[in-house]
């Protein structure tokens, strides 16, 4: 059964004159027991999608179901845990009180709610601040409290909005482990993230949202080009003449002290280069075939959609040269960063 399903889901903001489309015709299906990574640049419509699924905003058109129930029915959220981006709670309530209340709202009895709250505070590393008020918690602690409240009631589906944001590397590692652990218990996890390395590590499937439209969606090994994108060869004791010949064969070289790093695109000239290395009497340290990463794929998709390279906005070379040629803030911004960056998906 699909635990999440959407059909032509759309969300528009503003009135007729200032209308902007945050999400366009989203058709999405997430199967039971998988970890689904929902990716996209800022303003692509990820949070809007999650808010639509949780019934926090109303769709302009289209339909969505959680665990087989339409999202407009509040009972569709029974068995669902949601963690918003930057979770916030009433300032004067204590961590334990918040979790107990969330447990009761999820349908747990008083005793079971307290028991689960204690267990999850322990799991989230918040046991020592259980009696502390929310206003005294750090940003990272709030993030963990947000996750703990989502886990109250042992949900069948977890929806997490940027769960890794605001966490240190240790926290990110723990969060990844926890998500994988949840899948082990049969929970479906749907989360949005900017941290592509984490997504690549733990997700079964990913969907990439660009300017409110779902681009690619599928298993990582299906959407990534797993053919060798190139080879990295590390050698020591390579002479200048050989380096020149390797460059002529199509390899690029970089020298780090004794070591030379040779980067080759494709597989064709690898054998020839290795022969040159052997003939020169140099020592081969490593040979690593390089495959396309999710990050490279993601940047390629973004560049393809916006019709622009992934050039950062602070690139000075793209500032118009002639002073006084600015046509107004929006036009000049389009000119500077490319029209695609100014898509309707931005809010």
């Amino acid at each position: 059964m699909d635990v999440i399903r959407t059909e032509a889901l759309c969300k528009r903001y503003g009135n007729l004159r200032t209308c902007s489309t945050a999400l366009r015709n989203l058709d999405l299906e997430v199967a039971e027991g998988e970890i689904f990574g929902y990716l996209g640049p800022n303003g692509a419509g990820k949070t809007t999608t999650l808010n639509l699924l949780m019934g926090l905003v109303r769709p302009s058109s289209g339909r969505a179901w959680l665990l087989g129930r339409p999202v407009r029915d509040p009972d569709s959220r029974a068995g669902v845990g949601f963690m918003p981006e930057h979770p916030r709670f009433p300032r004067h309530l204590k961590c334990g009180e918040i979790l107990t209340a969330c447990g009761r709202l999820s349908g747990l009895g008083r005793g079971e709610s307290k028991r689960q709250a204690g267990y999850l505070l322990e799991q989230a590393g918040l046991a020592r601040v259980a009696n502390r008020r929310v206003q005294q918690l750090s940003k990272g602690m709030l993030q963990w409290l947000g996750l703990a409240q989502a886990l109250m009631g042992s949900p069948r589906l977890l929806i997490l909005d940027e769960p890794m944001s605001g966490l240190d590397p240790v926290g990110r590692h723990r969060m990844r482990d926890l998500i994988v652990e949840q899948r082990g218990r049969g929970t479906t996890v749907f989360f949005s993230s900017h941290i592509l390395a984490d997504v690549e590590m733990i997700c079964d499937r990913v969907g990439i949202l660009l300017e409110g439209e779902l681009g690619q969606c599928g298993r990582l090994d299906e959407i990534l080009d797993r053919r060798s994108a190139g080879t990295e060869i590390r050698v020591t004791g390579l002479g200048g003449g050989v380096v020149h010949r390797i460059r002529e064969m199509g390899g690029t070289t970089r020298i780090f002290g004794e070591e030379t790093l040779i980067e080759v695109h494709g597989d064709d000239c690898v054998d020839g280069i290795l022969e040159q290395v052997r003939e020169a009497g140099a020592s081969l340290r490593s040979l690593v075939p390089r495959r396309e990463s999710l990050e490279e794929y993601f940047l390629r998709q973004v560049a393809g959609k916006t019709g622009d390279d992934a050039v950062p906005w602070w690139d000075n070379s793209r500032i118009p040269e002639r002073a006084g040629s600015w046509d107004g803030p929006e036009e000049s911004f389009r000119e500077t960063v490319g029209a695609g960056e100014f898509g309707e998906g931005r809010r």
Binding site: M54, G55, L56, P74, D75, S76, R77, A78, V80, G81, F82, M83, P84, H86, P87, R88, F89, P90, I98, A101, C102, L105, S106, G107, G146, Q149, A150
Partner: peptide, 10 residues
């Protein structure tokens, strides 16, 4: 936005 965790429940 302190309502969101509560409204995410049934």
């Amino acid at each position: 936005g302190t309502l969101l965790p509560m409204l995410a429940k049934p």
